[in-house]
Protein backbone atom coordinates (compact mmCIF):
# COMPACT_ATOMS: atom_id res chain seq x y z
CA UNK A 1 0.00 0.00 0.00
CA UNK A 2 1.15 3.50 -0.64
CA UNK A 3 -0.44 4.93 2.42
CA UNK A 4 2.64 5.89 4.40
CA UNK A 5 3.47 9.13 2.61
CA UNK A 6 -0.21 9.97 2.71
CA UNK A 7 -0.42 9.25 6.39
CA UNK A 8 2.62 11.34 7.07
CA UNK A 9 1.28 14.23 5.09
CA UNK A 10 -2.04 13.98 6.88
CA UNK A 11 -0.41 14.01 10.27
CA UNK A 12 1.73 16.97 9.45
CA UNK A 13 -1.11 18.82 7.90
CA UNK A 14 -3.12 18.44 11.03
CA UNK A 15 -0.29 19.60 13.21
CA UNK A 16 -0.18 22.60 11.03
CA UNK A 17 -3.93 23.00 11.35
CA UNK A 18 -3.44 23.14 15.08
CA UNK A 19 -1.35 26.18 14.42
CA UNK A 20 -4.33 28.07 13.14
CA UNK A 21 -6.75 26.98 15.83
CA UNK A 22 -8.87 29.77 17.09
CA UNK A 23 -8.70 31.22 20.55
CA UNK A 24 -11.76 30.39 22.60
CA UNK A 25 -14.02 33.02 24.01
CA UNK A 26 -13.22 32.54 27.67
CA UNK A 27 -16.29 32.25 29.80
CA UNK A 28 -16.49 34.04 33.07
CA UNK A 29 -16.73 32.14 36.30
CA UNK A 30 -15.26 28.81 37.31
CA UNK A 31 -14.08 26.14 34.90
CA UNK A 32 -16.44 23.61 33.40
CA UNK A 33 -18.78 22.05 35.91
CA UNK A 34 -21.64 19.59 35.57
CA UNK A 35 -25.17 20.86 35.27
CA UNK A 36 -27.36 19.12 37.88
CA UNK A 37 -29.16 16.14 36.40
CA UNK A 38 -32.41 17.49 37.78
CA UNK A 39 -32.38 20.49 35.46
CA UNK A 40 -34.43 19.69 32.35
CA UNK A 41 -32.59 19.62 29.02
CA UNK A 42 -33.88 20.26 25.52
CA UNK A 43 -32.41 19.50 22.13
CA UNK A 44 -32.39 21.46 18.92
CA UNK A 45 -31.36 20.25 15.47
CA UNK A 46 -29.71 22.86 13.31
CA UNK A 47 -28.22 23.19 9.85
CA UNK A 48 -25.19 25.44 9.84
CA UNK A 49 -22.85 27.14 7.41
CA UNK A 50 -19.68 28.23 9.14
CA UNK A 51 -16.93 30.66 8.25
CA UNK A 52 -14.69 28.92 5.74
CA UNK A 53 -11.47 28.55 7.59
CA UNK A 54 -9.39 25.78 9.04
CA UNK A 55 -10.91 24.51 12.25
CA UNK A 56 -14.32 26.10 11.55
CA UNK A 57 -16.25 23.48 13.51
CA UNK A 58 -14.05 23.79 16.56
CA UNK A 59 -14.18 27.59 16.43
CA UNK A 60 -17.99 27.46 16.48
CA UNK A 61 -17.94 25.01 19.39
CA UNK A 62 -15.55 27.12 21.42
CA UNK A 63 -17.70 30.19 20.91
CA UNK A 64 -21.04 28.55 21.65
CA UNK A 65 -19.88 26.47 24.60
CA UNK A 66 -18.89 29.69 26.30
CA UNK A 67 -22.53 29.89 27.31
CA UNK A 68 -22.88 27.45 30.16
CA UNK A 69 -26.43 26.57 29.25
CA UNK A 70 -25.11 24.73 26.20
CA UNK A 71 -24.34 21.21 27.25
CA UNK A 72 -23.50 19.44 24.04
CA UNK A 73 -23.03 20.12 20.34
CA UNK A 74 -23.09 16.80 18.51
CA UNK A 75 -22.04 17.18 14.89
CA UNK A 76 -23.06 14.82 12.15
CA UNK A 77 -20.27 13.91 9.72
CA UNK A 78 -19.93 16.45 6.88
CA UNK A 79 -22.22 15.68 3.99
CA UNK A 80 -20.29 17.82 1.55
CA UNK A 81 -16.59 18.02 0.83
CA UNK A 82 -16.28 21.16 2.89
CA UNK A 83 -16.24 20.76 6.66
CA UNK A 84 -17.66 24.26 6.99
CA UNK A 85 -20.84 24.20 4.91
CA UNK A 86 -24.13 22.33 5.10
CA UNK A 87 -23.30 20.92 8.51
CA UNK A 88 -25.89 19.44 10.82
CA UNK A 89 -25.70 19.33 14.58
CA UNK A 90 -27.88 18.51 17.55
CA UNK A 91 -27.51 20.95 20.40
CA UNK A 92 -28.44 19.94 23.94
CA UNK A 93 -29.10 22.87 26.24
CA UNK A 94 -30.77 23.90 29.48
CA UNK A 95 -33.81 25.98 28.49
CA UNK A 96 -34.33 27.40 31.96
CA UNK A 97 -30.94 29.08 31.66
CA UNK A 98 -31.13 29.96 27.97
CA UNK A 99 -34.46 30.00 26.14
CA UNK A 100 -34.42 28.40 22.70
CA UNK A 101 -34.93 31.67 20.84
CA UNK A 102 -31.94 33.22 22.58
CA UNK A 103 -29.86 30.13 21.91
CA UNK A 104 -30.65 30.34 18.20
CA UNK A 105 -29.78 34.01 18.14
CA UNK A 106 -26.55 33.34 20.06
CA UNK A 107 -25.50 30.56 17.69
CA UNK A 108 -26.37 32.67 14.63
CA UNK A 109 -23.92 35.28 15.83
CA UNK A 110 -21.17 32.68 15.38
CA UNK A 111 -22.26 31.20 12.04
CA UNK A 112 -22.68 32.44 8.50
CA UNK A 113 -26.06 30.78 8.31
CA UNK A 114 -28.07 28.78 10.81
CA UNK A 115 -31.46 27.21 10.36
CA UNK A 116 -33.50 25.13 12.76
CA UNK A 117 -34.28 21.68 11.44
CA UNK A 118 -37.66 20.12 12.10
Amino acid sequence: MKSYPFLMVSCLTLFACGGVAVEPVVAEGPHDEPVPATEPRATLRVAVDLDRRTGCEEAFDLAVYAHRAVERIAWEPPSAASPCVARSATVTFVPSRLPQAELISFMRSHARLLEVKP
Binding site: G18, P24, H31, D32, E58, D61, V64, Y65, V70, E71
Partner: peptide
Amino acid sequence: ELLRRALSRETRTPVRDQLRRILD
Protein backbone atom coordinates in the same frame (compact mmCIF):
# COMPACT_ATOMS: atom_id res chain seq x y z
CA GLU B 1 -16.80 17.63 22.36
CA LEU B 2 -16.30 17.64 26.11
CA LEU B 3 -12.76 18.92 25.80
CA ARG B 4 -13.89 21.76 23.55
CA ARG B 5 -16.54 22.66 26.07
CA ALA B 6 -13.96 22.57 28.83
CA LEU B 7 -11.53 24.73 26.87
CA SER B 8 -14.22 27.25 26.14
CA ARG B 9 -14.97 27.65 29.85
CA GLU B 10 -11.51 27.23 31.28
CA THR B 11 -10.16 30.21 33.18
CA ARG B 12 -6.88 28.74 34.47
CA THR B 13 -4.19 29.62 31.94
CA PRO B 14 -1.98 26.53 32.36
CA VAL B 15 -5.02 24.26 32.09
CA ARG B 16 -6.17 26.08 28.97
CA ASP B 17 -2.75 25.58 27.45
CA GLN B 18 -2.91 21.91 28.29
CA LEU B 19 -6.45 21.51 26.92
CA ARG B 20 -5.44 23.28 23.71
CA ARG B 21 -2.51 20.90 23.34
CA ILE B 22 -4.65 17.80 24.00
CA LEU B 23 -7.20 18.90 21.41
CA ASP B 24 -4.49 19.55 18.82
